[in-house]
Amino acid sequence: MSGAGYLRSDRSFLNMPFRTLLELRNCAGPGLAAFVRYGYCAIAIGVVVLCGLQLAAAPSQPLDQPPASVGTIAEEPITPIPEPPPIDPRKVKLGERLFGDPRLSRDNSRSCLSCHDVSSNGATTKRQDIGLDGSSLPFNTPTIFNATLNFRLGWEGRLRTMESDVQAALANPQIMGISISEVVAKLAADPDMRKEFTAAYGSGPDAANMVDAITSFERTLVTPDSKFDRWLTGDAAALSKEELNGYWLFKSLGCVSCHQGVNVGGNLFERHGIFHPLASPKPEILRVPSLRNVATTPPYFHDGSAQTLDEAVRKMGLAQLNSTLTDQQVNAIVAYLQTLTGKYRGSPVGASP
C-alpha cells in the first residue's frame, strides 16, 4: 500500500496534539543520520507519513498510471470548504470598510487591501511587499482568502487567532505602525464611522469592536465551490482525466502528507529543504501553507523565490520528496492544483467580482 493509501485509511494523526506532531516531524532529516540520532521517532514518522518521507512500500503500479478508481470520496484526506459562517451583516460591512481604510496605518498611506487585495488573489503578485520604511517585508505575503481555516497564522505560525493577527499587523512598524488607540481616535472623529459602529455594536468605536469588525469581515473570506470541491461533493465529472491523475500523484508521491484537510495545508509545521535546499534557509521550520487558490498566488515559498507553479512543484518534489519529477508528472500535478481555485462572491478567485 502506498503512503497515500495508508493516509486515507488511517488519518488519526491529524488529531494528534500540535506539540506531538511538531516533535515527531522535527525528527525528519535529509538522511539516515536523522533516524539514527532520533531512533525513537522512526516508527511514528513512518506511521504518520511525514512530508518528504514516503512509506517504504512502493506503489503497486507505476506512478504515472493511476488506479481505475482514485478512491472513495468520503475517505479523501481533503474536505470541501464550507460556506462562510453566519455573521451580522452590519459588522461584516463595517469590517470591509475598515479593511480598505488607510487610517489604519500610521501615515494614512496604506490599508489592509494594500497587501491583501481581495479583488484578485487576496495577496499581491510581489515577491515581497514593501514596508512603511521602504524596505522589503521579510516574507512573501500569504493570501487572506481562507486564512480563517488555518490553525496558525503567518509563515512562522506565531499567531493563533484572527484577532491577534490584526493586532500584530497594526502594531508592526513595517506594516501599519500604529497603536489601536490611535486608530480608534481617528475613527471616533468621523461622524459616519461613529454611526456605523453604533448601528453594528450599540456604541462608538473602541479597541474591541474595531478588531471584531475587521475579523468578522475576514471570516467571510472563504472561497468554496472550486472544481475539486465539486468533485469531493459528488460531481464525478468535475475533474478531467489529467486533473484526477494529478490528484492521484499528489497523494501517491506524498504531497498530501503535509497538504491535507479543509485548507489543503495550513494545519502543520514542517522543516523545508529536507533533502535539498528549497528557498531561503531561514527560518528552517515554517507553517505549511494552504494550497487553496494556489494557481492565483505566485510567486511561491516564504521568500517568493519560485515564479511559477511549475517551478514550485519541481522544487518541492526535489527538496521535500527527493524526487525529480517528470514533465508529465509536473503537468498533471499543476493541472490538479489549478482545480483548487474557489469562488469569492460568485467569481473565481483572481477574476474581477
Rank of each mutant, 00 (worst) to 15 (best):
A56Q: 05
R110I: 03
P59Y: 09
E76F: 13
S135E: 08
F35G: 15
D88P: 04
G131C: 03
S111Y: 03
F13G: 09
E76W: 09
L94I: 02
E23S: 14
G29K: 01
R103W: 00
L94F: 04
I43T: 15
Q65N: 05
L21A: 11
P17V: 00
R8G: 06
T148G: 12
S135F: 08
L132G: 05
S120W: 00
T125S: 06
S109H: 10
G71R: 07
F99I: 07
K126D: 09
A44V: 13
I43Q: 15
F35A: 15
D101R: 00
D107W: 02
A68R: 09
L32K: 09
F35M: 15
L22H: 15
N26K: 12
V49S: 10
G122L: 03
C27T: 15
L22T: 15
C115L: 02
H116D: 04
P138R: 07
D64A: 10
R103E: 00
P77A: 12
R90P: 04
D64M: 04
L14C: 13
I81N: 15
L98D: 00
H116Q: 05
L22P: 12
T72S: 07
A147C: 12
G131I: 01
I81G: 13
K91I: 00
P85G: 04
R103Y: 00
P82L: 12
A56C: 09
L55K: 06
L53T: 11
Q54N: 15
L132P: 07
E75S: 07
P62C: 01
C27S: 14
E96P: 10
R8K: 09
I78M: 11
L14T: 13
S105M: 01
R97L: 11
A57N: 09
P80G: 05
S12C: 07
L137S: 03
F99G: 06
P85I: 04
I73P: 12
I87D: 03
R97W: 10
M16T: 10
I144P: 00
A58S: 14
A56W: 03
I87K: 03
S111P: 09
I43M: 15
S69V: 08
G95S: 04
F18D: 14
G5N: 08
L132Q: 03
A44G: 15
C41H: 13
H116E: 04
V49I: 11
Y38P: 13
R19H: 11
L137G: 01
A28T: 14
F139W: 05
T143F: 07
S105C: 01
S109K: 08
R8T: 02
S2M: 13
R11F: 04
S136Y: 09
C112W: 00
D64E: 10
K91C: 02
A56E: 03
G134P: 08
P85L: 05
A28M: 14
Q128Y: 01
G122I: 02
P67F: 01
F139T: 07
R25A: 15
V47L: 10
